[in-house]
Design a protein around this nucleic acid. Structure first.
Lengths: 96, 96
DNA sequence: TCGGAAGTTAGGAAATTTCCAAAATAAAGC
DNA sequence: GCTTTATTTTGGAAATTTCCTAACTTCCGA
């Protein structure tokens, strides 16, 4: 699943929004939704495949955290498509 | 179809990219893809429903053009989710 | 070592998306 | 009016997405 597809689901965008404030465990994230844990686990997998989040095992828990650089790249790609301003950050091989 | 879902398809993103350079007719756009015209017409409908493009009849042709303000709003929404910089433009009820 | 807590995997149903060919609509020109 | 050009609508097949329950794995503490 590519990054734009990953961003298309409201549930996954909400997960990302929750991770803005710092890493959270799978269960902590899952509790915020009215969906089963396997369903959420699936959404985590999509975000991980897209590179938008990374996970680490910490004891019995699995901690997810945002991967800002990939997220920023996706946004930059969309901005290029629409030719509107870039997010603050390094430009990428373009003559300004 | 919502705006993020509309942006999830590579075909539709390419259509938007083509429209950056100015309005184009349905046929002109369709010719750029290796897909049938009805398929492209479907993609146009999705983009129109999402508000990302608008269309006007001009004689026998239908001209599509980008709706930058809606596109910008979508981008801003994603930036809020990820808490990274905004595209240049008016802020939206936020204390800077 | 056994039991519980935290997550993921497996299997499958329902809904949505993506695409096409055929038919229908719209406008222009003869 | 009839034909041609431009585009959309219809109907349907194949693929993908979203969600669930049940079963499994992993880790920790008693």
């Amino acid at each position: 699943m590519d990054v734009y597809q990953a961003l298309a689901s409201p549930v996954r965008r909400e997960i990302l929004a929750m991770l803005r404030d710092g890493p959270k465990s799978a269960g902590e994230l899952a509790d915020a939704f009215d969906l089963s844990k396997p369903t959420l686990s699936g959404h985590f997998a999509v975000l991980r495949e897209a590179g938008l989040v990374a996970s680490e095992r910490e004891g019995a828990k699995v901690i997810y955290h945002l991967n800002l650089s990939v997220a920023e790249e996706a946004l930059t790609g969309l901005m290029d498509v629409l030719r509107i301003g870039r997010p603050s950050g390094k430009p990428k091989g373009e003559t300004p």
